[in-house]
């Protein structure tokens, strides 16, 4: 097992010491960064700092120096976003800071995505995401999408005010195994249940896992609506997505 002193980057060491409290998360991050080369640690540090110009420059430099795109994504960008997610969950940082980190992630991914796409490298999983019918709020959904993409998922974003039929079309069109719905208004929350009913009516409910979230949404409400999963925040959304896709894989095996 690696020690925190094995991490060469001062900023990353401080971030882990100051903000990561859960033992299993500390251990995972220490192991991850201890084996990551210094350049990847630099990229992660710039991302955590929300510095999109530096992430942009360092990512380009790393790729030009011959480092694999997948390594830059996993050990630099995704690793950095992992710490951002923990800090957000623990209320050390809030939405403006996460938005800045996501902007930095996007700057790095702009170099990575074309390479991965050309090489035919598959994402961790594919997720359809949208805010439900009648609801124009998307900040929560967008944070989830940032975290999902920052964890290697391909996300098809249907935007806001999404009708049940549109969710169904997207799931069929993209052959997605996972759907995420968001709502901010207590008036539109029931549309999560209506969308799930629409999947039942279309005889598609068994083919897709459905997760829900949003500021007023709770686990109890998610259960009442018949959802398969609930995420309290953007980090929980990623954990739920991973869990549900694991469940799907086992079911299909």
């Amino acid at each position: 097992m690696a020690e925190i002193t094995d991490i060469s980057n001062d900023f990353i060491r401080q971030e882990i010491e100051e903000y990561i409290e859960r033992p299993e998360e500390r251990e995972r991050n220490i192991n991850l960064f201890a084996r990551a080369r210094p350049k990847m640690q630099e990229i992660a540090a710039a991302l955590i700092d929300g510095d999109n110009d530096t992430v942009n420059r360092l990512t380009r430099e790393a790729l030009d120096s011959g480092i694999e795109a997948l390594e830059v994504m996993d050990d630099g960008l995704i690793a950095g976003m992992g710490i951002v997610g923990i800090k957000f969950r623990q209320n050390f940082i809030f939405v403006p800071e996460v938005l800045a980190c996501a902007r930095a992630m996007k700057a790095g991914m702009a170099h990575i995505e074309p390479i991965l796409s050309a090489a035919g490298i598959e994402p961790v999983g594919k997720v359809i995401m949208g805010t439900v019918k009648g609801d124009l709020h998307d900040i929560g959904k967008n944070l989830c999408i940032m975290m999902l993409r920052g964890s290697g998922f391909e996300v098809i974003d249907l935007g806001v005010d999404t009708a049940p039929d549109r969710f169904i079309e997207a799931v069929e069109e993209h052959d997605a195994l996972l759907l995420g719905m968001s709502a901010l208004l207590s008036t539109t929350m029931p549309n999560m249940g209506k969308t799930i009913e629409a999947f039942i009516d279309a005889d598609l409910r068994d083919k897709v896992k459905i997760m829900v979230g949003g500021a007023p949404v709770t686990q109890e409400f998610a259960d009442d609506m018949g959802a398969d999963g609930y995420g309290k925040d953007a980090l929980a959304c990623v954990a739920t997505a991973k869990k549900l896709l694991g469940v799907v894989a086992k079911t299909r095996a």
Partner: peptide, 11 residues
Amino acid sequence: GVEQFLLMSLD
């Protein structure tokens, strides 16, 4: 816009 306003508040 929410995201634009929040990013401005940081930048």
